[in-house]
Design a protein around this nucleic acid. Structure first.
Lengths: 343, 343
DNA sequence: AATAAAACTGGAAACATTTACGGATATGGG
DNA sequence: CCCATATCCGTAAATGTTTCCAGTTTTATT
């Protein structure tokens, strides 16, 4: 952070209002904040003068003294991912009602960036954090625990036996239902395009996939399970290789809509039609909030509900000091559309 | 903002480091900030002690005294719109290098919300703002001018003769090229799905549309020009009505990719094929950053360039006090893909 | 060895607000 | 009329940092 050449605002302060009205700075503060015993007449006069003079409360000074800054940091992997965009928007609108402002930070799934972001947030004395953790082991969350900073994990459960508060979707259920549905359509060779195994949601979706296969008595084929990158260049190769397997594959379960779309695109490039040749199921249901022409069969994850629940949990932690651990799992829903059909 | 029950952090302060090392608070501050003459030995010792004690600079206190908070507010209509998501992400990553944090705020294209957001940002003493203004007349930008708060407009030019700094795409060029291209394919009845006329970018795109028609000697049909809402329920009606016109239409120029996608979807619902029956051109080129299966012909607006330029302009304003007005127009590019064909 | 300059460090004020505490005036009941 | 209580308001300390001003020690130069 370079050096700013000179201060350019000279905002009106409580002192200014004090001089104008004749009341003490203290009284002004109390009047504006509804504290203490101030006569209605005085309160009204002060409020009007403040308004007239264009007073804006200085959150830095207030926060410094009181410990409440009215700020929350939201730390996600990638705000340009509509999944996060939708939720962050929802949160921001909710929080504005309480005059709480949002810092937004991207980790890019990098642990060092995550740590830097969290420390920076702490330096700004945020009242709390909402974090979609990278889960590449880092002890930064422990630090938050140590310092008793309220935070809620978004979409991913903590590693190990941590008692962090979190809100997640039912990823196991989603993996299970997606796979079971494909099986019900007669598919047996289901390519699974998973996420990194250290991320809890990917782990659970994969467990759901396993469970569905197991219940249907279909043998598990490790060569049909791949970890792909968010926007993977390796996808084409995976598809080509999988077609070359002895039994090939007839369906794809992708762990995000982004991956599903990319898969459909690559399948087209390879001359395969969806759903005639290959069925594809996604995960997220981003489409439900955005009008894309391609109607993807997917697992719908309720994003508004998630955003609301996360905010509610955090506000409880901060303001009610509701110390009990709150861990919420939100059910998901299979949405059948146009990218799947019976084999 | 409710009341927080009690302070829960007791962070290590300069005073703590002072007591541990025996140096004055003043010296600690200077050592950590590279100011004044501090011996390398002392500086190193202080830095190590700070590190060891887990010191985090309190930006509130620092900002209060120095006037520099290391925060910037980004105010857009809708962070869940990937167009903004992509740019905000880019900005955040750029600014993190200077240890600058981003407040994100949604206006939802509402002037009152915009004003509230900006005032809130001022209360947090942001060093500057990046604003995609609603342009529904409000004098809030004047206030920023009055108070000499650095800000840069994003994607929209100021109303009237304001001397605001801005970075925009060449919307006129985009509107012109999109229309000209459709004309070159033999289209004469081009439905124009515009945005609100009080928004500068929409105005300019429409002017480009006019110009292209004019140059080609094609008469302007007011009934082919419609203002549509971001995610409009009225779209279906517009399309149906337009088909019912004496000469109908054979092509659509949509002012955003979102609208283009929605249009294609609705056209399919109406039994029309794209591009066989109707050609569609979008605006934004969101697809270029996201792998959707539908390859839309569109006007590509360089988003990374925009984000970089906005940040650069703002940083100049804040730190170099570069008072001259900076107004940048970034060229756009027609990308021909699969939703257009000759008539 | 004297003197100037450079290197190094501290004290205290300032930023704008909140809060703990206490003082003053008015109201009401006995 | 007196005391208790409620109502209304002010003083001063506190938050953690930066900055102004100044002081002391060390090094370099003649």
């Amino acid at each position: 952070m370079a050096e700013k050449i000179k201060m350019n605002r000279s905002p009106v302060t409580l002192k200014d209002i004090s001089q104008r009205t004749g009341y003490s700075v203290n009284t002004i503060s109390h009047a504006l904040n509804g504290k203490k015993d101030i006569s209605d007449k005085t309160r009204k006069l002060i409020a009007e003068t403040a308004e007239e003079m264009g007073y804006i409360r200085n959150s830095l000074a207030g926060g410094l003294r009181s410990g409440i800054t009215g700020t929350i940091a939201v730390i996600v992997s990638d705000i340009s991912n509509p999944l996060f965009g939708i939720m962050v928007k929802e949160m921001e609108i909710l929080l504005r009602k309480w005059n709480v402002n949002l810092f937004i930070m991207n980790t890019n799934e990098d642990a060092a960036t995550e740590e830097k972001a969290i420390l920076s947030a702490l330096g700004h004395n945020v009242d709390g954090l909402i974090i979609c953790p990278t889960q590449k082991d880092s002890d930064i969350l422990h630090r938050l625990d140590m310092e008793h900073v309220p935070y809620v994990l978004l979409g991913r459960k903590p590693n190990g036996e941590s008692a962090s508060n979190y809100v997640v979707w039912d990823d196991f259920q989603g993996g299970y239902e997606a796979t079971k549905y494909l099986i019900s359509l007669g598919h047996k060779r289901i390519l699974c395009l998973s996420g990194p195994s250290y991320i809890s949601s990917a782990k659970e979706r994969l467990a759901g996939y396993h469970q569905a296969l197991y219940e249907a008595g279909i043998p598990l084929c490790p060569e049909l399970i791949h970890e792909v990158q968010p926007v993977g260049e390796d996808l084409k190769e995976i598809l080509t290789d999988s077609f070359a397997l002895p039994d090939g594959f007839t369906a794809v379960f992708a762990f995000s809509d982004m991956i599903a779309w990319e898969t459909i695109y690559q399948l087209n490039e390879l001359g395969k039609k969806v759903p005639e040749d290959i069925s594809v199921v996604g995960f997220d249901g981003i489409q439900s909030k955005m009008p894309f022409p391609c109607k993807l069969t997917t697992i719908l994850t309720p994003k508004t509900k998630m955003a609301t629940q996360v905010v509610k949990t955090l506000m409880n932690l901060i303001y009610q000091k509701f110390e009990a651990v709150t861990q919420t799992t939100i059910p998901v829903q299979l949405i059948v559309r146009d990218t799947t059909q019976a084999k």
